[in-house]
């Protein structure tokens, strides 16, 4: 599926994740009059000038490219909201703030195609980058706690692109830890501790971030 070397591990390439993100709905303000568009995924419109309408991102971008609409940035894409999110991210080192599942892709598409519709474009772009960096750093910090006997990792509120980014490494690491921590390899030494653990929980889960 993905056009990368490591086909087994990375299920999606970045472009494919972006493709999925294009189905998110977004508000546009048309500047032309147009009848309802009948698409396989649904009907959109009719479009009247200056009357906001809700369309998928791909349609919005396509219309914007032809100069037929203005894209309204989503609610979370304002300086105040993003500053707040960034602060919260920094203050809570153990959890992620709820952001749209596709915020990385949406922001990139909007930055590319409708710069002029976003007020404070440069500020917002750097804020999104900062948020992403802080979150990624947090993921790395969390992954450091990975060691033997980790059978599942829980990451709440992580976005699609972030998951996709760390997936290959995490899968590999968990695989090798699982292999080396299997019962028959380690049990001879600390069989005592193991049996205690096994009695408590056969497959203990390590929560990377608490709820």
């Amino acid at each position: 599926m993905a056009s990368q070397d490591n086909q087994l591990l990375s299920l999606f390439s970045a472009a494919e994740v972006e493709f999925l993100a294009e189905d998110e709905l977004i508000n546009i303000v048309p500047s032309v009059r147009m009848d309802t568009l009948h698409m396989i995924c649904g009907d959109y419109g009719p479009f009247r000038p200056q009357i906001p309408a809700q369309v998928p991102l791909w349609l919005g971008v396509a219309l914007k490219k032809r100069g037929k609409c203005r894209i309204q940035p989503p609610d979370w894409m304002t300086v105040e909201k993003l500053t707040q999110v960034l602060e919260d991210e920094r203050e809570a080192p153990r959890e992620f703030q709820p952001l749209p599942f596709h915020y990385v892709e949406i922001s990139r598409l909007l930055f590319d195609h409708s710069q002029d519709d976003i007020s404070d474009f440069y500020l917002i772009r750097s804020l999104v980058e900062d948020v992403r960096d802080v979150r990624f750093h947090k993921v790395e910090k969390g992954l450091e706690t990975l060691s033997g006997r980790t059978h599942a990792v829980k990451l709440k509120n992580l976005s699609a692109m972030e998951v996709n980014l760390i997936r290959p490494f995490i899968v590999k690491a968990l695989e090798s830890f699982y292999k080396h921590d299997s019962e028959d390899l380690v049990k001879q030494v600390d069989s005592e501790r193991d049996s205690q653990l096994a009695a408590a929980d056969r497959l203990p889960r390590r929560t990377l971030r608490p709820r």
């Binding site: 990368q4 070397d5 970045a14 972006e18 490494f169 899968v171 590999k172």
Partner: peptide
Amino acid sequence: MLEAGRNSMKAFKKWR
């Protein structure tokens, strides 16, 4: 393991 992480990072940067 290292290559897996590095490749996905590279692919992401390229996309961005």
